[in-house]
Design a protein around this nucleic acid. Structure first.
Length: 666
RNA sequence: GAGCCUUUAGCUCAGUUGGUUUAGAGCGCUAGCUUGACAGGCUAGAGGUCGGCAGUUCGAACCUGCCAAGGCUCACCA
């Protein structure tokens, strides 16, 4: 039998993965053994595998395979996330290429298209994970919009509403003018930008005097309803009771006095636009100001603006500066660095907007979730994330959970003709409650369900529970056996979005933590430390890498340079090292396979010593490896294996017991 | 603006409560090897006043203070 000199991962990996699958080696059923459970951080259903997924799932696979070898009953549960905004945007774009606009479709028609798209393109990533060798229990694959998971989300919403933790109200929210929906605070990314600081003159009504204010958003002057100065600022004291005229439209607005204003900053005079800035909004409430919303949902100006109606906010910014200049309202322009919020999904500049949304109160449920992390009931690896977690938890604000989208779980609130509403799991139950509470004569047609859906994270925060049906049937056998899960492997980017909220959900709905360890790995960057991005073109195709180096080669390469919490500077040469390692093992096998065994031959003294030495060495290394694993030092564990095989086993042991040329071995 | 983290060989990182470390690993590098498992290999070797300054100590990569560079998280200063 001829064994090729070089290892061929393609042949080997496909062969064994099929075999594993055929024999259901990864499938798990509750039994007498202790369980080891892990849920996958569900990737977007429309996503494709990128380097980050590859790292994330390789680490999980290592953990779960080790647990399997330790004879735990291992269950690694895979699945995908419906990713409301991202998926809806993709479907909208696809429809656009077919000449269909979303607005021309009914909700039902649109959802039909969305589901079609999901069936067709969804789950590609799961097939890619199989190529990677991921040992998931594929029979348990879940999707966050499966009927049972959706039901769980609705049940939880109703439960929280009944507990008084969910409320509906008009608040200043982060509005994405491109996705046309509200976002949570976490979905806003602040970036420092070089902006312009415009100094504008407002005429004082009935006088020749002017007052100068400074702003970065001149287009919002059309929504001004006051000018605010500090009560101790003598420069402006004489303006009490006077009014200023908004430039270009000459709407009179009052002066208000509040120590919120920083005397030193700008001119010490602040224009107040309650509809378009959270601070101004608060000032507006305090001083009883009118609120003039000058924007449409898509970021264009509406009739309230009086001028530039229908034009985009950024176009108007340019134009209004010209107008102000022409009318001698512009005093000067300075360069300034300020922080601007962008939508995490669409990269659109966020518009603070007053709107009616659903919120979840965070104060009560965040406290226990903070505690279990601080007292190490849930351990973070590396622990430096505890601080970051605490800071966020201590300052968290109510969570805006409604989204003006169709793809997702529709909010189970039903409005009555008189404006009242009821919250219930089904229309039938809603009707029942509505009749009881408001009017016996109501019919099902009188109820109108809320148009909005819930934030995707409002479903994925239940993931470790709902995949085992622990919300609907908390006493079911599987949930009792598999939950709480053991380890969670994810990126720090979603510590707040997901990890923190899963902890809250676990404690709130089941009184138990959802997992015991959270391993937070870094971001995969290129070898120059730059983030991988489409525009830079510096992200290798993971499947291409697997074809080139073998899945094991690539995975060894990634793990070797991946200490917990640190970013990984990816370089193809790492995969080469991994491939070479696989080849080394292959050739050790080739060597041994080539030996002829003579059972009658005495074992030489040297061989006996060699055997004892290696055995001792092996056990010592095993201890080291276990120690590394307990501390989630995967890279170190792998290096110990690497050296054990390459140096101790191949370079020393095999050489020591190697029989003379063409002689048999004992 | 607030909080946190990092800085050790060319690169990526270890270095556990300060003393068996004249500071380690992998990769890379240099010089030799067409050696019968493997050139995706073997052998030999070079490389660091542990970011800077000051201090504590008999003794500091490790503790303290200041400074410098890089990074992360949060934040309503127009």
């Amino acid at each position: 039998m001829e064994i090729p000199k070089q290892y061929s991962p393609q042949k080997t990996e496909n062969k064994w993965y099929s075999k594993w699958q055929e024999n259901k080696y990864f499938s798990s059923k509750p039994d007498d053994r202790p369980p080891y459970t892990m849920v996958i951080p569900p990737p977007n259903v429309t996503g494709v595998l990128h380097m980050g997924h590859m790292l994330n799932n390789t680490i999980q696979d290592v953990l779960v395979r080790r647990a399997r070898m330790q004879s735990y009953n291992t269950c690694w549960l895979p699945g995908t996330d419906h990713a409301s905004i991202a998926t809806e945007a993709k479907v909208v774009n696809l429809l656009k290429t077919k000449g269909i606009s979303k607005s021309s479709l009914s909700r039902e028609e649109f959802l039909k298209h969305a589901w079609e798209w999901k069936e067709k393109h969804g789950g590609i990533i799961l097939e890619q994970l199989k190529k990677l060798g991921a040992s998931c229990d594929w029979d348990r694959t879940k999707f966050t919009m499966d009927d049972d998971l959706s039901e769980s989300v609705i049940k939880v919403f109703v439960d929280l509403y009944n507990k008084g933790l969910i409320y509906r109200g008009v608040r200043m929210v982060n509005w994405d003018p491109k996705a046309l929906t509200a976002l949570s605070d976490e979905e806003v990314i602040h970036k420092e930008l070089k902006s312009k600081f415009y100094y504008l003159q407002y005429k004082i009504e009935g006088s020749d005097e002017y007052v100068t204010i400074a702003t970065t958003r001149p287009e919002t002057i059309l929504g001004d309803t006051a000018i605010c100065v500090h009560p101790d600022d003598e420069r402006y004291a004489h303006l009490k009771g006077k009014k200023a005229l908004v430039p270009l439209i000459n709407r009179p607005i009052p002066f208000i006095f509040d120590d919120y204003v920083d005397i030193e900053f700008g001119t010490g005079a602040l224009k107040v636009t309650p509809a378009h800035d959270i601070n101004d909004y608060n000032l507006g409430i305090k001083h009883n100001l009118k609120s003039i919303d000058i924007f449409n949902d898509n970021g264009t100006l509406n009739e309230n603006a009086e001028i530039f109606i229908g034009e985009d906010r950024f176009v108007v910014r340019e134009k209004i500066v010209e107008s102000l200049k022409d009318n001698n309202h512009l005093v000067k322009v300075e360069e300034i660095v300020n922080s601007v919020g962008f939508s995490e999904r669409t990269d659109e500049v966020i518009e603070p907007k007053l709107s009616l949304q659903w919120f979840l109160k965070m104060e009560k449920i965040s406290k226990p979730a903070l505690e279990v992390v601080m007292n190490d009931t849930i351990k973070f690896h590396p622990p430096k994330f505890k601080n970051i977690y605490r800071h966020w938890m201590e300052n968290v604000r109510d969570w805006c959970i409604s989204r003006q989208l169709w793809w997702g779980q529709q909010i189970p609130a039903y409005y009555l003709p008189d404006g009242n509403f009821v919250v219930a799991e089904t229309t039938e139950k809603a009707l029942e409650i509505a009749r009881e509470k408001y009017n016996q004569d109501l019919n099902i047609e009188d109820l109108k369900q809320d148009e909005d859906v819930l934030d995707t994270w409002f479903s994925s925060w239940l993931w470790p529970i709902s995949v085992f049906d622990g919300i609907r049937n908390p006493d079911n056998k599987e949930f009792k056996y598999y939950y709480p899960t053991n380890d969670l492997v994810t990126a720090p980017e979603i510590l707040f979005f997901w990890v923190a909220r899963m902890i809250m959900a676990g404690l709130e709905f089941n009184g138990e933590i959802p997992f015991k360890n959270v391993y937070l790995h870094g971001i995969v960057r290129d070898k120059h430390g730059r983030k991988m991005s489409k525009s830079l073109g510096n992200s290798p195709d993971p499947i291409g890498l697997i074809e080139q180096f073998g899945a094991d080669g690539v995975r060894v390469g990634m793990l070797l340079s991946s200490p917990a919490g640190n970013d990984l500077l990816f370089d193809e040469s790492l995969c080469e090292q991994g491939r070479n390692f696989c080849n080394k093992i292959w050739n050790a096998f080739r060597l041994i396979k080539g030996w002829e065994i003579n059972k009658n031959q005495e074992q030489s003294e040297e061989a006996q010593i060699a055997y004892k030495w290696f055995k001792a060495n092996f056990n010592k290394t095993l201890e080291t490896i276990n120690n590394h694993f307990e501390k989630f030092r995967i890279a170190d564990a792998l290096m110990a294996v690497y050296k054990l095989i390459w140096d101790d086993f191949c370079s020393w042991y095999l050489e020591m017991i190697k029989p003379p040329y063409q002689q048999p071995i004992d």
